[in-house]
Design a protein around this nucleic acid. Structure first.
Ligand SMILES: Nc1ncnc2c1ncn2[C@@H]1O[C@H](COP(=O)(O)OP(=O)(O)OP(=O)(O)O)[C@@H](O)[C@H]1O
Length: 738
DNA sequence: CAAGCCATGGTTTTT
DNA sequence: CCATGGCTTG
């Protein structure tokens, strides 16, 4: 065991106070870079030094990467061979472990499959079809949104109308789809991401499981508490109900996942939940220089409904940040390359430079330009590998082997690669399954008894034999590497993609076959790291991989990542691109003040990742999905204290891009004369071709202006919202100057 | 039944 | 711009 002094070394008074707090609820409320994560890590060490059994400690982080880093740091606080260490993981992963262990008590088999959004999307689509035509104005995507919102707020299908603010006429269809969706999950023996949390909550309501979990875990620590959702909040309370040893850390200004149900209220109401909670504030920042902090602070001050925080850097003033005005995305990418070159000349490592933006798609040009200039980089998109078609195919085989009830997976692979089991044959199988009341896989196994399969019958039988052979292999015990190799060959996936690559004549590194090989490597890693793992566990690990988890720390490459993925990280130098209206804040968020505030927090998070040097870029033009468009600097740039900005005439940003609003008085324009010759009429400033900004619909171009009754109306093509007809005196419109 | 072609439409962030 | 789906042809 390590000496207490070492654990408490390099901590400020308040940090130490939090670290040495033993029993009872504790909240560490502090700004960016103030050492919250360090507090959690040291506190785990301190608890252990005070004789707490490490295996009774649970620490929840936001990402697997953060968990791995914390585990590594905590490792030094442990006796070399002292049994189990603390559980350090994300909410989702921790829940999966508990469900595998205790799921039986709530009727959950331990080989359940985790469905990702693409799987659940398929289910919801089918569910929509089953239920009949969708109500007007509803799309599958919107239904998905409603269901996911309902689940994260723990609203059941029959409670939609009372608990969710939905138009009444949509409710019957939606609750039927939702109920059907839940049934299908059960049929597939699958859980979606929300279920992982919800079912664990069920565990905590089941005496046997609850007691076992409570006996095992005595101390709970949750990092990034500001981004927990309702279910996670209830889980945290449930896990710690017996001891009330619950330590939460977070920063309300860094809450950026409201869009998927995170409730900032969890952290704001902590003291109400636990009136006896000890609250520690940290006011020193050890990460960034004062100019960077000041920029961040001046920005975030524009959010209403927040408590102001004091945060002082211990690193001095530092350099001012720079705002770069670029012509278009190519120019922007060139400037980024130039900044990286200069940094490299100054002796900065590539890996200490991050390029961030709001949406991954904006990295295309930057990536190309970095490649062209020989600058090494890595894109933080771990999931993209697992979303490749060939990898999803392979994973689907593994999923069905582990859980034959996984019909979504089975439907994907039954004719992939094509093996003569077409739509017709599949319909016959499905029909058989339905009439016999068995799962789809069972129908496949019974193919020899289904003559109506016709010519396909023999193909189905052969497929069934192949799958059963693989299943037997697993039952007899096999490494994941071996299983993956066998699956790739037995399924003919390798053959199929090999042939296709030959035809397409693509460069090798990106080829599907190479990806399949890489997946073998993934399996090898798993075998090495989890010698007594299982197929189910292997698949689950992969289902919970996160973008940022795949970023390699030990390679000297520039990191490209979204600001969401940057949560909790830090870099010497940060370059944020496309700080433009309709990108940041994103077009989808315009017109909703809460969402705009979250966008502001997002930029705040991006800015506060920088230790010493910060650059913000915007482009005047950008081509998005084919068309070349004019863009405007983000409103957020104007909010940053000019005192901390260098190198650019900040007034260029404050120069109004929007002409102030005017209203046509309906009375005065009350003539019936048709008005098509618009320029002649001084009463109406709007003309076809003008760019306008609408509070709700965002930016658009006026197509036509006409008089209707006593009002001028206009038809406006909005970039996002599409063509709308609006009454000019009433609609909240601004003219935008180009 | 397979494969390739064209039209359509949707269009963030992610556990 | 991209992915998906429907249609046609082999
Ligand atoms: N007392 C201290 N002395 C020196 N450095 C410290 C101290 N506390 C924290 N740091 C350093 O400050 C940096 C930020 O710490 P940490 O990541 O724990 O902050 P945080 O509050 O979790 O930040 P954020 O909320 O922005 O993710 C780290 O590099 C950490 O090592």
């Amino acid at each position: 065991m390590i000496a207490e002094e070492q654990i408490l070394a390099d901590l400020t008074g308040p940090q130490r106070e939090a670290v040495t707090h033993m029993e009872g609820p504790l909240l560490v409320l502090a700004g960016a870079g103030s050492g919250k994560t360090r507090v959690i890590t040291r506190r785990i060490g301190y608890l252990i030094s005070q004789g707490v059994d490490p295996s009774t400690i649970v620490a929840i982080t936001f990402t697997n990467k953060a968990a791995a880093e914390m585990a590594q740091r905590v490792h030094q606080f442990l006796d070399s061979e002292s049994g189990f260490g603390p559980a350090i993981s994300t909410f989702h992963k921790f829940c999966v472990q508990l469900l595998r262990m205790y799921g039986k008590t709530i009727g959950l088999e331990s080989n359940f499959t985790i469905f990702d959004t693409s799987d659940t999307g398929k289910l919801i689509k089918t569910a929509c079809g089953d239920v009949g035509a969708l109500p007007a104005g509803m799309t599958v995507g919107k239904v998905e949104g409603v269901i996911s919102r309902a689940k994260s707020q723990m609203v059941r299908p029959d409670e939609l109308s009372s608990k969710l603010d939905l138009p009444q006429y949509l409710v019957p269809a939606l609750s039927r789809i939702y109920a059907r969706y839940e049934d299908m999950l059960r049929e597939n023996k699958a859980l979606d991401f929300d279920d992982l949390l919800l079912k664990t909550l069920d565990l905590l309501n089941e005496p046997f499981a609850r007691d076992a979990i409570h006996r095992r875990y005595q101390y709970l620590l949750v990092d990034e508490y500001q981004d927990t959702n309702r279910v996670q909040y209830l889980l945290a309370k449930g896990f710690s109900a017996h001891t009330r040893n619950f330590c939460a850390t977070g920063d309300p200004d860094q809450s950026i996942y409201g869009w998927r149900g995170a409730e900032i209220g969890n952290i704001l109401d902590f003291e109400k939940d636990f009136p006896d909670a000890k609250v520690v504030y940290l006011e020193n920042n050890y990460r960034s220089t004062n100019h960077i902090l000041n920029a961040a602070d001046s920005l975030i001050k524009n959010n209403k409904q927040r408590k102001d925080k004091k945060l002082i850097s211990v690193l001095g003033q530092g350099e001012k940040l720079k705002i770069h005005s670029c012509e278009d995305e190519n120019d922007e990418a060139r400037q980024v390359v130039e900044l990286i070159r200069q940094a490299k000349l100054k002796g900065r490592a590539y890996s200490q430079i991050a390029v961030m933006c709001r949406v991954n798609s904006l990295f295309r040009t930057v990536e190309q330009t970095l490649r062209d200039n020989g600058i090494p980089y890595q894109l933080a998109r771990g999931v993209s590998f697992f979303q490749r078609k060939e990898i999803r195919d392979l994973m689907s085989y593994l999923r069905v082997i582990a859980n034959p009830a996984d019909t979504v997976g089975l439907e994907r692979i039954i004719n992939m690669p094509t093996r003569g089991i077409g739509a017709q044959a599949q319909a016959v199988l499905k029909d058989y399954a339905r009439t016999q009341g068995v799962i789809f896989y069972e129908a496949v196994l019974n193919a020899d008894r289904i003559p109506s399969l016709g010519k396909s019958q023999v193909n189905v039988i052969r497929f069934a034999e192949m799958m059963e052979r693989l299943r037997k292999t697993v039952a007899n015990g096999v490494t994941m590497e071996e299983l993956v190799r066998q699956t790739i060959d037995a399924s003919s996936l390798r053959n199929y993609y090999q042939k296709r690559s030959e035809k397409d004549n693509r460069p090798d590194e990106l080829s599907p076959v190479a990806n399949l090989e890489e997946f073998v490597g993934t399996a090898q890693n798993y075998d090495r790291e989890a010698p007594d793992g299982s197929l189910t566990d292997f698949i689950a690990q992969l289902s919970l991989v996160n973008d940022i988890d795949a970023v390699e720390d030990d390679s000297d490459r520039v990191v490209l990542l979204t600001m969401h993925a940057a949560k909790g990280l830090e870099f010497e130098q940060v370059v944020i691109i496309a700080v433009e209206e309709e990108i940041l804040p994103h077009a989808m968020c315009l017109g909703n003040d809460n969402q705009i505030e979250e966008e502001r927090r997002l930029l705040f998070v991006g800015i506060t990742r920088a230790k010493r040097e910060l650059h913000l870029c915007f482009s005047h033009h950008r081509s998005t999905r084919g068309s070349y468009r004019q863009n405007f600097p983000s409103r957020f740039l104007k909010e940053i204290d000019p005192q901390s900005v260098e190198g650019m005439d900040v007034s260029e940003l404050t120069r109004p891009t929007r002409v102030s609003q005017f209203v046509i008085s309906p009375r005065k324009s009350a003539d019936t004369e048709a008005v098509t010759a618009l320029p002649a009429r001084p009463k109406c400033q709007y003309r076809p071709g003008q760019r306008v900004y609408h509070q709700k619909f965002g930016y658009g171009v006026i197509q036509e202006v006409y008089l209707s009754g006593t009002n001028y109306n206009a038809s406006i093509q909005f970039n996002i919202a599409g063509l709308k007809k609006l009454v000019l005196g009433i609609a909240p419109l601004h003219i935008v100057q180009s």
